[in-house]
Nucleic acid binder design. Sequence first.
DNA 1: CGTGAAACATTAGCGGC
DNA 2: GCCGCTAATGTTTCACG
Lengths: 166, 166
Amino acid sequence: MANAEIDAIDRRILAILQENGRLSNQEIAERVSLSPSPCLRRIRRLEESGVIRGYVALLDAQRLGLDLLAYVNVRLEKGGGWALSPRSGEATHADLFRAAVQTWPEVVACHAMTGEMDYLLRVQVEDMAHFSRFMQDHLLHHPSVIDVKTSFSLEKIKETTALPIS
Amino acid sequence: MANAEIDAIDRRILAILQENGRLSNQEIAERVSLSPSPCLRRIRRLEESGVIRGYVALLDAQRLGLDLLAYVNVRLEKGGGWALSPRSGEATHADLFRAAVQTWPEVVACHAMTGEMDYLLRVQVEDMAHFSRFMQDHLLHHPSVIDVKTSFSLEKIKETTALPIS
DNA sequence: CGTGAAACATTAGCGGC
DNA sequence: GCCGCTAATGTTTCACG
């Protein structure tokens, strides 16, 4: 669990794995000029220390009928939301909103942001009808939400899960 | 290559793989109540049809020293950029900008967007000093860029590569 | 860090529903 | 067409030098 140092070979292993997470250990070992055993030990260490968060398959949203990607800026009420949940004296508007976000599957990402708006949501849905329903039924209906500003993605210019580790 | 239909079992396989891309075929087969052979055949078909775009390892940005995440809205000059590359009579400002984006490793995502601004960039860097350098040396220096508006991520509320396929 | 052997997973071919 | 069995191949993983 202790965060051991990450040397140049570790970096190369990470760079390979974040492009192709299914290469065999043998293949990776070869590319970084190591034999399979020490290579696997490094990978396991990186996994257990949390540098490697996990392995996933990336799917094609359009081929699954998810043709609409929206970025939604959200501004919240300031202060606590006590009027809404009188018994939980601790719950703020932010707490309520964050909990709600976790339950909405359309929201694939949400960040608290600097600037005029408080949150930036990435929303992935089938089409405009579904987006409209999501806004009406969930986002605009949420008692903590004051204001929203939406932009839609016209074209994906670049999109990678690989971090810049050179 | 022909887009065969995606049935309920395919969906379950996809849902499993986009959460954990390293489960063995045996394990997946068991979870969807199939024997390994047809399960593997389905997975291969999904890979070859492009529904599964690939497999990657997800890394922890903070543990790699990438502590700053910014979303940068960019507005471009309208019209062609002929003055800049007199020989390529076809290159517009948009073309030039998109090509440049591909060469900047800090930009992990870029979408053409509706609304006041033309592009939304997701920029991942070590710290504010690096961000400042990126802006000065690349983004603000680019001849097609008119205006930028940046917001910084204060906190990651939710972040998943898994698409909502229920 | 490297070697070797056991355990495990993937994969292709064939028969049956 | 799609499923499931079996057998061969390749890979991961561990103990040890």
